[in-house]
Simulated scan of single mutants.
Amino acid sequence: MNNLVIMKDRQAVTDSLKVADAFNKNHRDVMRAISTKINSAQNCAQFQKMFVEAAYQDASGKSNRMYYMNRDGFTFIAMGFTGRKADDFKLKYIQAFNEMENRIRQPKSERLEIMRKNSATKRAGVLYKIAMATDSNISRQKLLHKAAEALTGEKLVPVMQDKYYSVEEVGQQLNLTTDLIDEIANQIHLKAEYSGQNQYGSWINSDIPEWFYTKQGIELIDMYKFIARKNHER
């Protein structure tokens, strides 16, 4: 009973296969009822607007006839189906037609925005599942950060755990300039390859990739700062 109504040629339609399946009818009987309507002398032109012939392939690969029908066409075919179960299916079809027609009436910009949000939500969901499955706290944090970006559509400032520090924070702790800290880190090859991590810190993917330091990284910088200062002053 999924996708009872679809959008085709900018119109909400269903098809004879779905109707036959929903109302537990033989498809050839539904086809016969539609053909009778179309071929009737009275109101023939109107019925031709309600139904469009098409083809589908069955399980054996054989091509067979089917019909697409709009709301009016469905009404004419389904009105002969009686019983409580049939009424329940009619109500579901009516609801499906209403929902699809409301979507069609939405401005194109709104429909595109809804599609974008749905896509972003799916991407964020995938990133969240991957994050929850990883054993690395740093990798999990990066993935959750990207999941949040996918939902908001904006670059977010990374929220780091207390044991990670930006170069500015390291500079404040050690009373060093950021340039000198970077110089020391480069001289002793403290940083991992881009996008990687080690015991001294990790790359964070933001607009400009930035290395964040662990306490071990800060201690190592502190050990080499006097040598680096002397070289820097020469």
Results as ranks from 00 to 15, higher is better:
82 T>R: 11
201 G>P: 00
169 E>K: 14
57 Q>T: 14
77 I>T: 06
71 R>T: 05
56 Y>R: 03
223 M>W: 13
130 I>K: 13
188 I>M: 01
52 V>E: 13
182 D>R: 12
21 D>T: 12
92 K>S: 12
65 R>G: 04
4 L>T: 05
47 F>E: 05
206 S>A: 13
33 A>N: 15
50 M>N: 09
225 K>A: 04
207 D>L: 11
63 S>C: 08
218 I>H: 02
232 H>I: 05
71 R>W: 06
220 L>K: 12
206 S>E: 12
215 K>D: 13
233 E>G: 06
87 D>A: 14
169 E>M: 07
217 G>H: 00
144 L>D: 02
156 L>A: 05
217 G>I: 00
180 L>Y: 02
195 S>Y: 15
13 V>H: 02
92 K>L: 15
35 S>T: 15
130 I>F: 06
53 E>I: 14
199 Q>I: 05
111 R>Q: 15
138 I>T: 11
29 D>I: 14
153 G>W: 07
230 K>I: 14
207 D>T: 14
111 R>P: 04
129 K>L: 08
188 I>N: 01
117 K>L: 14
36 T>K: 12
184 I>D: 02
223 M>C: 10
197 Q>M: 11
91 L>A: 10
181 I>R: 01
45 A>C: 07
112 L>S: 12
76 F>E: 09
170 V>Q: 00
148 A>R: 12
39 N>H: 11
214 T>C: 01
116 R>D: 07
174 L>D: 03
187 Q>F: 08
202 S>L: 06
88 D>T: 12
98 N>Y: 10
42 Q>R: 12
136 S>G: 06
119 S>W: 11
59 A>W: 03
